[in-house]
Design a protein around this nucleic acid. Structure first.
Lengths: 203, 203, 203, 203
DNA sequence: AATGAATGAGTGTTCATTCAT
DNA sequence: AATGAATGAACACTCATTCAT
């Protein structure tokens, strides 16, 4: 019974890696089985289809994101110059830890054949959480919240969230192409993020 | 002979659409043939393999990007408050027109199994062009160019380029999920871009 | 211990139903287990293989048939106008009660790949029993038994037994397609059987 | 193009044989391909699934049956002592020629999971055709047609048609088990059929 | 007597690619 | 330049059967 849980988890972890390496369609169940060290039929004992493995993995990303948002709301309930760094680190850690799943999610979300996508859904909950924080910051300072909420949505999604997703996607390629260390990339991105996205929240 | 060129182009256009809808691995040569209205074997008369179709399409994106950069260098050789809008429009038009290919490129670039990727290559040439413009702006104003070029690279890639790619990827989904028109999204993004990325270039 | 017998019987009863619904090859051990409410491995505790379940079921049919023949020989040792009905009912009851197994047996016997088949074996013992009765009837009446025993064999198999097997096979379909009740079908078949097969035994 | 028709026919002929030997569920597409001397994928070029092969084969049986009925209606439009033999031969030839398909049809029709079945459908058209003939015979003789049409239906199906289907199913097994030649079995069955089913049509 | 987990060998089906014309 | 037919190598998924407890 303990083993069973561990086996299922191993399958998921392996699938996550293979999906992120080959893409969902490019990945082979055979490969997952072999690399997870289990019989292929066992995968279908735990999951009803390859599709269900993907869904399970993406649900995991959602859960993780929600938990991070809750923790984030507790630790840094509003935005101020002081807690910028904490917030940034929380997000960078999240996307770094989940970068394989994020790659899968982005690749799938790029497909033109669906109305909405995982990234849009993920965007929604993260963006809303951020906007809530901003609202609280304004209230705390006794300022009235800017009426143009749509602009805020666009800002959080396109210039707030995207750099983090891009970091998840291209971190390793940046390290190898530009010969930059993980730490340096992270620090540089922090400075850049301060000067661009975060700066816009200080007027 | 005219026909032959047209047929090849039709195959490419159809492949571009199918790839962007289903992803490269998810797409079927059969589907491309049927939807392009040609015999499947004919595709192999024009292209050596499915892979070669992809390469041809992605090369097209490169050519287009290079041309845009050249035009851009002529029209707006440096960056100033006055030509922001022109620059923004040029990029938005480029990613809108090429959004199908960009979706393919991003999905492929998300795969963990390659050192570098199309998006990294595309990033390089675009980012370099932008940095060149910035350098020229500094020189024009008699200022000395900031020493930290790496920060500039990171900035142009993660907060300069990414919002445009995200626009290409999620434009349609944004329109349908947030019930926003193409124009409104574009205008809002312009304002956001001004307040974040472009603002950083004005200190 | 009581339970154990009951469990085994439940497996057999369920297998009988599933085999008759899906055919032997179409049936899945998984389905039998689930519908019998037992663990799949338990089926292999009671039976060596899926094949052995089938054999057990078909042996059951044989035993039942033999018992019926013995009872039949006691109750109606010869054939006369008076006991036609009793005989007919005995057979109809037998094939009705065993119709699921008969469906399985016929479907299996239809396969071209065996020399003989369950239905041929079943035919043999039933036909022989009937012929024995006829012989006794002739003797009782002081008549000499017709020399052409082969004709008798053919008659008992093709026009004596077949209508009963067909009744087992198509009873439910007849009821639904021709909107006829079980009783009406049985009575009509009796009249028909009298006018055809039984009539031939009266000259 | 000629070849293409021939290849498709060869696949069907082989499938017919394999299905009749192993049953539909027991048959393997691999086996059909190998024995038809074609690549397995080619089977899916001509037929969309194993199921569709079966349907095509069974449709063929229907067409053949209809044609036989039409020919039969022309040659022997009513029933009389004189054309018994012709009628019998027509049916025996039909079921002999189509015995492989009939085996498949009976095995499939035995499955408990369908409302109606091929054999019921086949029964309907054949039985109706026979009843029509009987009606014509009565009219020709100036007799009034018996009111109980349901009895006629039952008679034609259970004692008229069934012996022929049984002949198709068990002909070979009879030959080998009872060491009887094809001709002798056919002749004996004719005599038996005369004394039973046909006799009932002479009152 | 009973079960959850595991497996080898397959099973129908698909796919990119090629051949012959 | 174009096509219908053909193929080898997968591919996702299944199944009867067994193992360990």
């Amino acid at each position: 019974m303990r083993d069973s849980v561990e086996t299922r988890a191993r399958i998921l972890k392996t699938a996550e890696r293979i999906f992120s390496e080959e893409g969902f369609d490019g990945a082979r169940v055979d490969t997952i089985a072999k690399e997870a060290g289990v019989n292929k039929a066992l995968i279908y004992y735990y999951f009803k289809s390859k599709e269900e493995i993907l869904e399970t993995i993406l649900s995991g990303l959602f859960e993780d994101a929600k938990n991070m948002i809750i923790r984030s709301a507790e630790n840094t309930p509003d935005i101020s110059g002081d807690n910028y760094r904490e917030l940034f680190d929380m997000y960078i850690d999240f996307v770094t830890k989940n970068r394989k799943i994020i790659k899968i999610a982005v690749a799938e979300s790029a497909k033109d054949n669906k109305k909405s996508s995982v990234i849009m859904e993920l965007g929604k909950i993260i963006v809303n959480a951020e906007i809530e924080k901003i609202r609280r910051s304004y209230n705390a300072k006794g300022l009235h919240f800017p009426e143009d909420e749509k602009e805020l949505l666009v800002m959080e999604f396109f210039t707030g969230l995207m750099p983090f997703l891009a970091y998840a996607l291209y971190k390793e390629q940046w390290e190898s192409v530009y010969n930059i260390s993980e730490d340096e990339l992270r620090e540089t991105l922090y400075r850049v993020y301060q000067k661009t996205h975060l700066a816009a929240h200080l007027e």
